[in-house]
Write a protein that binds this DNA or RNA. Structure first.
Lengths: 101, 101
DNA sequence: TTTATAGATTACGAAAAGTAAGTAGCTTAC
DNA sequence: GTAAGCTACTTACTTTTCGTAATCTATAAA
């Protein structure tokens, strides 16, 4: 990849938000904690990629994973404070969509 | 791709903004009209992809392309009204980056 | 005729995404 | 006790997109 004078924080934010499915997953989690299957059903994403993205978002401290040892097992995902702070960003995309698409 | 109950306008907006380089190109064009080489130098993107993205954005009515038949040729890109309207979205990403990264 | 410049386009290997089938751990039904 | 079902993944494989570098087009000056 080419180097540039671009601010690394902005660059990273753009990579995060501008990664396929990331913003939609956050949008979905703004509704509240949800389990894997619920997210998968709400979005046109496959389980394979949802699993991958949730791991990435967990590593970034944006999403939190909670395992409930019930039968069958239950796993819930919710936004951390850092994740919640992306609400305005995602809402802006939503507003733009309403006005211009 | 899986189908879902997701609002198609939101879905499209997410695909646009959440496509690699798109938001950064718009961010760059917020500075004003710029030529191809200027954008390429400002961002860590290759000419091949920049060309591809600019065509997509032009097709979406977000970016306008102006050719000046000088020697050597000069081509400038600028945001349309629709493109300008994405400023708040891009600024939100920028703000989030400043606060959380 | 060669060189230079800007803005692309093409070729090709590498990486990421899409699809479908399979796995693990535990439960209930037969 | 074994077969089937549930959730949350994971693996294998194909298709699409990306990244890098070389090439093309048009024009003009050296």
């Amino acid at each position: 990849m080419k180097e540039s004078a671009l601010c690394p924080r902005l660059s990273k934010a753009m990579e995060l938000v501008g990664k396929r499915w990331t913003a939609l997953i956050i949008y979905q989690l703004l509704e509240g904690p949800q389990r894997f299957n619920a997210i998968e059903s709400a979005l046109p994403i496959s389980g394979r990629l949802l699993s991958e993205r949730l791991k990435e978002l967990e590593k970034e401290g944006i999403v939190e994973r909670k395992v409930f040892s019930e039968v069958p097992i239950r796993v819930e995902y919710n936004l951390t404070e850092k994740g919640q702070s992306l609400e305005q960003t995602v809402r802006e995309i939503e507003n733009w969509a309403k006005s211009w698409l």
